[in-house]
Lab assay of single mutants.
Amino acid sequence: TRVETATETAWISLVTALHLVLGLSAVLGLLLLRWQFPAHYRRLRHALW
């Protein structure tokens, strides 16, 4: 049971790290898009909202 718990903890930390990385890359990508294509971003936002 001790090994299982350790594996579970490792998986949880791995998944958390993955989610953090994905979230950060998504935010960075959005910022980059907004910085590179302001007109396109505004049009996209206008279409979405």
Rank of each mutant, 00 (worst) to 15 (best):
S25M: 09
L48S: 04
G29Q: 01
V3A: 05
L44V: 11
A17M: 13
L18R: 02
L22F: 06
I12G: 04
Y41E: 06
L22M: 14
T7D: 06
F37H: 06
A26D: 00
T1Q: 13
L24D: 02
A6K: 07
A6G: 14
L48T: 06
S13Y: 12
A6P: 08
E4Q: 08
H19C: 01
T7G: 11
L22V: 11
P38T: 07
F37N: 01
L31E: 03
L33R: 02
L48Y: 05
P38E: 09
L33W: 07
V15Y: 04
H40P: 15
L31W: 14
L48M: 13
W35T: 15
L20P: 03
L20N: 00
L33A: 12
R43S: 08
A6Q: 09
R2P: 13
R42F: 06
I12N: 06
H46T: 09
A26L: 14
W49C: 03
T16I: 12
L24F: 13
V27W: 08
A10N: 13
H19D: 00
R43I: 05
S25L: 13
T16N: 04
L28M: 11
T5F: 02
A47C: 07
L48W: 07
R42D: 11
S13A: 12
W49P: 04
Y41N: 02
H19P: 00
R43L: 07
P38M: 10
L33K: 03
A10G: 13
Q36A: 15
P38L: 09
W11R: 04
R45K: 15
W11T: 07
L32E: 05
T16V: 12
L48D: 06
L32K: 04
R43D: 08
L24I: 14
H46I: 06
L18G: 01
L22H: 04
H40D: 05
E4C: 10
P38W: 07
L24H: 00
L18W: 07
H19A: 03
L48E: 05
A39S: 13
R2Q: 14
P38H: 09
L18K: 04
T1R: 13
P38A: 15
I12H: 09
V21F: 13
H19E: 06
V15F: 05
A17E: 00
L14G: 00
W35F: 15
T9H: 15
T16G: 12
E8T: 08
S13P: 06
R45H: 07
T5K: 00
R42H: 10
S25K: 04
E8L: 04
I12D: 01
T5L: 08
S25F: 06
V21G: 05
L24G: 10
L44W: 08
L32R: 04
R2E: 12
W11H: 12
A47L: 06
L22I: 08
L14W: 00
R45E: 02
G23P: 02
R2T: 14
R42N: 12
Q36E: 08
G29K: 03
A17R: 01
